[in-house]
Nucleic acid binder design. Sequence first.
DNA 1: CTTTGTGAATTGGTTCACAGCT
DNA 2: AGCTGTGAACCAATTCACAAAG
Lengths: 226, 226
Amino acid sequence: MNKNDEVVPSPGEQRLSRASVQRFSLYLRHLERWNHEGQQIVSSGQLGEALAINDAQVRKDLAYLGNLGQPGIGYYTRELITALRHRLGVDRVWSAVVIGVGNLARALLRYRGFSQQGFQFVGLFDSDVKKIGQMVEGLEVLSPDALPKVIAATKAELAVVAVPAEMAQAVADALVAAGIKGILNFAPLTLKLPQHVSLVAVDLAVQLEQLAFLVHLSPSAPEPEA
Amino acid sequence: MNKNDEVVPSPGEQRLSRASVQRFSLYLRHLERWNHEGQQIVSSGQLGEALAINDAQVRKDLAYLGNLGQPGIGYYTRELITALRHRLGVDRVWSAVVIGVGNLARALLRYRGFSQQGFQFVGLFDSDVKKIGQMVEGLEVLSPDALPKVIAATKAELAVVAVPAEMAQAVADALVAAGIKGILNFAPLTLKLPQHVSLVAVDLAVQLEQLAFLVHLSPSAPEPEA
DNA sequence: CTTTGTGAATTGGTTCACAGCT
DNA sequence: AGCTGTGAACCAATTCACAAAG
């Protein structure tokens, strides 16, 4: 089959598998640590071992970043990091608002990994009047009424929804109306969003159930094979 | 088509796709709500719409539970719930310990969804001497030294690891040594575990990066097609 | 007529295996 | 020698499409 004109790999955007993007963040984390430890070169085998995946998989993934690999050598750590950050879109600052000031929100706000990766929280909202006005991790808790103004003023593009399930869809609708571009949802329901708003959902109860299930049907006898 | 001997669906364990299990928890959540609202019958189309997936997918998934569907009718909500809970292994109580008493742990402890699904937290551990002895959500914070005893005494099978990355592998090793069967890991690293211990990992920073990436390459123009 | 259950087709993702570069 | 990049093979998951059941 000739492939001259069928699928031209346009230099800007190759097709990249949903799953490989999941791994990009993980590569990045390991690379940043190794870079920090002074390691200047890294191989697909090393990365594969760290993430417990096949080395060919790693090369396939990294090939999406361009031909950064040096045959016989490996990849230059710094170069990979730069390319990954660029590809993931984290080579710039992302502003995010957080709706729902519970323990989960506090955990997120306090986690310094975010600022290291270029995320900053620029607004904190809760409909509980007892919380409004409080300072939490350096931010004042505001009424959700202020959402449109704050989002417009800060140009926040991302939002974290950490409210009870009953309120989550209404909150999401307000966020969409205010022009937010992506939502990280922790509320245990399936949010309905217009397709131009991106969604990542994390349901902690589902994860724990998942684990229970794995244990439930786990090979209880550790096979005596190396 | 005879199916007598080729792939005998042994009543105990059919092969079930990893991905479909991910969805079982989600089906269960919707079904429980609908059941609560008095809906006695549900169709694959309804479930598919709720989770934004194909209806054939739903039927394939549910077929793993046995032939519960009534052609021309749908599924009986109660029956589905019972079967799902049984299959997921959540038709019993699971005991879990939590290591690392930060905001994330508090969020988990406070979330009532867990107890509703049959999860109970029976031990809370932190190596910070300032936290040891404190009461948190009705549990006393203990030193990690007490892990083996508590796990033996409570027969806890699951553990939630919510400690900083530097400590996580050591904590995991201690949990494995104490006989834990599954770990839900929130620390941002890839834990190395013996294969008889199950693992579910949730990395919040990765999820936020994922979202940034989606927005980064999102079709910024909402296509004017219905 | 509605909805299930499921082979067949399709799509997507992973692993293999090796040519080619250093 | 060692390691990358990638077509081909393989495996897994999703969707199609339709026969069978109520």
